[in-house]
Write a protein that binds this DNA or RNA. Structure first.
Lengths: 240, 240
DNA sequence: CGACGTCTTGACCCTTTTCAACCTACGTGG
DNA sequence: CCACGTAGGTTGAAAAGGGTCAAGACGTCG
């Protein structure tokens, strides 16, 4: 077990503790189970870390390699020269992401839920993996392709020209990832500001679009953060 | 050598012919050399195909796996319910992309240059690769991560709020990928319509933005398709 | 309580979309 | 050879949409 040091408010974890972290993530999905198994099988190669809300996980990036999320939500963002923040990706339970230490774009990773547990393999360990653990390396590749799909989906969302379309398709995808059951209320792991910085709209526009969808009865908001999709088909179809 | 059948206007190729296809792609980059070597080393596992302008390369997708471009430009796109086309990714010499036969999003691949040469490994061969050819599989993973970077870059471009910013950052990235030398004139592998469908703007807005950049002296257009960036720094800095 | 962050709403202005026209290059067929 | 159609590109004017600025509501935490 490799104990990583240098995290800000991060708590070091070992594989024994993994179980509790995993149990905390309610509503296991089949894919998520395979990710947990993958993490266990890696043994000492993997580095676990537990983070709290708003923690900056930049210490992960240094050694390169790949990372994934076991619980909670982590966002990948960058600050532009203008001072604006852009969120590039949003990683939730089971999602993988690449860690490139030498990336000139200088992305940073932050936790947006109360807590989050991440795992990672350093670049040096990834190098020897195809020979030592070919099965596991294959799994890495599959998950990496899934990351590509996730990004492609987001490109399709961002490609929408009208704000209501953007928000509708964005929320559809987000809710589908957050909960298997259709129509269930989900706790959004991000603020309106986060959504705005992710889809490329002004906060006010995001707020207006969400209010609009609520008035039309396509979604329901118990609190601003707790959302349920009422008519999944219509939500997408109406706003073509 | 696996001869692929079922391509539309595709010409079957073998590895011997690869050399001529590769030589045709002028201005080799170090990364591209490694991709060519990778292709050669794969031997009979790889399937090559030569396509002509506007060819639809959907036959590639069926067997799943991964593909990459040896010369020319291929775009990955999808038709929305509304009939609009959205271009999700643009692959050029050396770029990899994932092929998922069972993808419900039903992407299609088209050649946008006079000709293009692609290579691919079927899913079934990819499965046995980590054990049989661990070195090469590692290379696949690296290139896949590069694909993630490419998509992330595009998400950043799409996140820009003003059209001049979008087009400026889009063209900067595009020209950097097309030519190593700064300020050289490049032949754009896509029409204004393609650009519009890729960044999420109306064609007219794209045309106006480009004209605007030309008037300001940031870019030069010999023909609408032949473009040179005059002031790379300023092109990006001005439009923050 | 007051300060703060989050979310919402309103009014106004600017940008982009839309619709229309026009231009050029190119290929086809009379 | 020229007329014609088509595809790609550009430009203009009106309409719609989103950004910006300003203000206020709400909950939480010290």
């Amino acid at each position: 077990m490799d104990y990583h040091s240098g995290g800000t408010a991060m708590e070091r974890m070992n594989l024994g503790k993994l179980s509790s972290a995993v149990d905390a993530a309610a509503g296991h999905s089949p894919v998520y189970e395979t990710v947990v198994n993958f993490t266990r099988e890696l043994g000492t190669t993997v580095t676990l870390a537990r983070w709290e809300r708003a923690d900056c996980c930049d210490s992960m990036v240094e050694s390169g390699g790949i990372g994934w999320v076991l619980s909670g939500t982590v966002r990948k963002s960058v600050i532009l020269e203008s001072g604006q923040r852009r969120i590039v990706d949003l990683m939730m339970r089971g999602d993988f992401f690449s860690l490139q230490g030498d990336d000139p774009r200088a992305f940073s990773f932050e936790v947006s839920t109360d807590e989050a547990v991440t795992a990672r393999i350093a670049h040096r360990d990834l190098i020897s993996m195809p020979i030592l653990q070919p099965e596991l390396y294959r799994f890495v590749h599959e998950r990496t392709c899934e990351t590509i799909s996730r990004l492609e989906n987001h490109i399709l969302v961002q490609g929408r020209t009208r704000s209501a379309q953007k928000i509708a398709s964005y929320l559809s995808l987000l809710c589908a990832r957050l909960s298997e059951e259709q129509g269930a209320a989900v706790e959004l792991p991000m603020s309106r500001y986060d959504i705005a910085d992710h889809v490329g709209l002004a906060v006010e526009t995001v707020s207006r679009a969400i209010t609009d969808l609520r008035r039309r009865g396509l979604i329901e908001l118990e609190t601003p953060r707790s959302m349920a999709i009422c008519q999944a088909q219509k939500l997408l179809a109406d706003l073509t």
